[in-house]
Structure formats: C-alpha cells, structure tokens
C-alpha cells in the first residue's frame, strides 16, 4: 500500500517534470534542425545548428535587438534599484503618519492594469515628442521611464528594510555621517543581497517586457528581443530552426541568471510577501 503510493507519487512528479522540460528540449533540439525536419516531427538533435545561427544573424536584425534590450534592461534595473531602495528606506526608516498614507496610496497602483494606462502614457510621450525628441515616441528613454518606478519594488525594499538594524543608523550619526551618507555608506552595502534579488527580478521583467515596447517603439531598428521574436513567430512561412535559435538566444540571459542565482531569485520572490 505504502509502496504503491510512493510509485504513484514518483510517476506523477515524473510526468510533471517531462511536461515542464519538454518544450525546452524540443526548442534546443529544433535549434539544430532544418525547418522541414521540425515540421516532420523530428525530436533528435540535428547538424544544422551553425546554419541556423548564420541565417539568423544574416537575415534578421538580432544584434540591434539584443543591444536595445540590453540597454533598456540594464538602465531600467539600475534606476529601479536606486529609486525604489531610496523610497523603501525613506518609508521605513523615516516613518511618519503622512508617509504611511502616501505609501498606502502608492500600493494602490499595484492594482492598476498596464492596459488601462497604456493609452494615456502613449499620448503623454506623444505630446513631448516635438519638444523633447530624446524622450518622445520611438525612443529607448520612453521605453524605460514608465517602467522604472513600481509599487512592487518600493514595497519589496520596504519589507526588507524592516530587517535593517537601526543601531547602524545611530552609529553612523555618531560618526558624523549625513543622512544621505548613512544611506549610501551603510544601508546600501549592508543590503547587498536584497539589491541582488531585486536586480534579478527587475532585469528579467525588463528583458521580457512586451506590451509597452510594442506600443512605444515603432521603427524596426528600435525593436527589442521580445518584439523581434513575436514578429518572427507571426510570419506565414516560419523558418522553425532559425526561430528556435532566436528564442534560445533570447532565453539565455534569464536562464543563466536562473541557474546561477536561483537562491537570490527565490529570495526576491519571497521578499515581496514576508513581513
């Protein structure tokens, strides 16, 4: 009876595992096959990897897309960390009634769906395109700015700041550090793991973001990786081998982060709920 149950559990988990990783295996195997073999249902790895990679780099502007996505993700991550940690620190360490009210109002924005503010944001950036072309429609700056400050990360930093020892702040004051100096010299280095966790989530979100770049970036040379893949995926006669290669390349950065920093990643997820 007990053995039966065990076997059932292992079977169940094995099926779940196969379902979970099969699309990955198929993607990697298809990357090495010709398009026609993929449509014939070939599962085994082939010998056309080099050919697919070459075709991808020659016929599709994947390099500019990688560069655009890279710039957007890195800048977004830095700005997010800076702005959100300042706010999380301010709300928690310099707590006051007024700030708590502001904090609750900020939290309300977690319920605002992006689709609801997309049109006004588009009009906002459309309105400044003539006077400030660098921040207007079809610029990387416009793709970055509205995504930087989110209630999620402010909340995340505030939750984690609860564990930051106030004695350190007093010590800093006695040492004659300014309030700004305390933040920069004591808080930031102490909270390294919190920053790491937030950086992973911010980077992944930004790297994978689709809807806002789709709205705001219009010219082909501004395209990010998700836009490029969506475009390839909707073609009428898709070259499966090549598209799978593009998808693997697009997934590589987040997959590497996942494998090497899984602990921080999980810490980042959990940091938003504890407390």
């Amino acid at each position: 009876m007990k053995k039966c149950k065990r076997i059932f559990i292992y079977t169940f988990l094995s099926i779940a595992t196969i379902v979970s990783i099969f699309p990955f295996l198929w993607m990697i195997s298809s990357m090495t096959n010709q398009s026609v073999d993929v449509t014939r249902g070939r599962l085994l790895p082939g010998t056309h990897l080099f050919e697919n990679v070459k075709k991808l780099f020659e016929t599709v502007d994947i390099v500019p897309a990688l560069v655009n996505s890279g710039i957007i993700a890195v800048v977004t991550t830095f700005l997010t960390l800076f702005i959100a940690s300042l706010a999380g620190y301010g709300f928690e360490i310099h707590r006051s009634k007024g700030k708590d009210i502001v904090f609750n109002i900020v939290l309300l924005t977690m319920m605002i769906p992006f689709a609801a503010i997309m049109v006004p944001l588009y009009r906002l950036f459309g309105g400044i395109t003539d006077t400030m072309p660098f921040f207007g429609i079809d610029t990387l700056a416009a793709a970055i700015l509205p995504t930087v400050t989110t209630a999620f990360f402010i909340f995340f930093f505030r939750q984690n700041t609860k564990m930051f020892s106030r004695d350190l702040i007093e010590a800093g004051r006695i040492d004659g550090l300014s309030e700004w100096g305390i933040f920069l010299r004591i808080y930031v280095p102490t909270m390294k793991t919190t920053y790491a966790a937030a950086a992973i989530i911010a980077f992944m979100n930004s790297w994978n973001n689709y809807l806002w770049p789709l709205v705001i970036l219009q010219s082909p040379e501004k395209r990010t990786i998700p836009l490029l893949i969506s475009n390839l995926g909707s073609s009428y006669s898709p070259d499966y081998g090549m598209i799978m290669t593009a998808i693997v390349i697009a997934t590589l950065p987040t997959a590497l982060v996942f494998f090497f920093m899984q602990k921080h990643f999980v810490a980042g997820m959990m940091g938003s709920v504890k407390g």
Binding site: N208, I229, I243, T251
Partner: peptide, 11 residues
C-alpha cells in the same frame, strides 16, 4: 525563465 513571448511562440 522563459519570456511570455518566447514560450507563447513555442506553444
């Protein structure tokens, strides 16, 4: 780890 767009195309 997959982006929403990437896994959508795969599906």
């Amino acid at each position: 780890v997959t982006s929403l767009v990437a896994y959508s195309v795969i599906f």
